[in-house]
Design a protein around this nucleic acid. Structure first.
Length: 133
DNA sequence: TTTCTCACA
DNA sequence: TGTGAGAA
């Protein structure tokens, strides 16, 4: 899936992100210090944010509005950064094992099934796949 | 003009 | 978190 790549594409400068998220440059840079976002840099050291970064910033803002402090926000968002098998390829890589076409199809099917149980907050520990948004 | 880093009456 | 200085 290339949409994932496109979401991570560095596109927007600070000013645009400030308007889009209604956050101050100070806040945005502060969240970056806390590893909540990882914007790229231009040759001139200017930050370039991706759609994914903007989405993260909006989530941070929501969590903060809900009264959660930075420590809490970090715990929640960094948790999502844990090795997550967002696609079969990553899963295969993690397994260090060759999969037959049939096994790949099984994984894909399971992935689609899981994708369906979207806004259901039941993620048993040990769950191989997790989805957000 | 915009954004960056650094620092704090 | 805000804000201002000095640089790029």
């Amino acid at each position: 899936m290339s949409s994932k790549i496109r979401r991570s594409m560095p596109l927007f400068p600070m000013g645009t992100v400030m308007k889009l998220t209604d956050l101050s440059a100070r806040q945005i840079r502060y969240y970056e210090e806390h590893q909540l976002i990882r914007p790229e840099r231009t040759a001139g050291n200017r930050r370039l944010f991706s759609l994914y970064d903007i989405d993260r910033l909006l989530e941070i803002k929501d969590l903060l509005d809900e009264g959660i402090n930075m420590a809490g926000v970090k715990k929640i968002l960094l948790k999502e950064d844990e090795p997550v098998y967002s696609n079969v390829k990553d899963h295969l890589k993690k397994e260090k094992k060759e999969f037959t076409n049939e096994e790949v199809r099984k994984l894909l099917r399971r992935e689609l099934i899981n994708a369906g149980r979207f806004h259901r907050d039941d993620f048993p520990s040990g769950e191989k796949f997790r989805y957000f948004h």
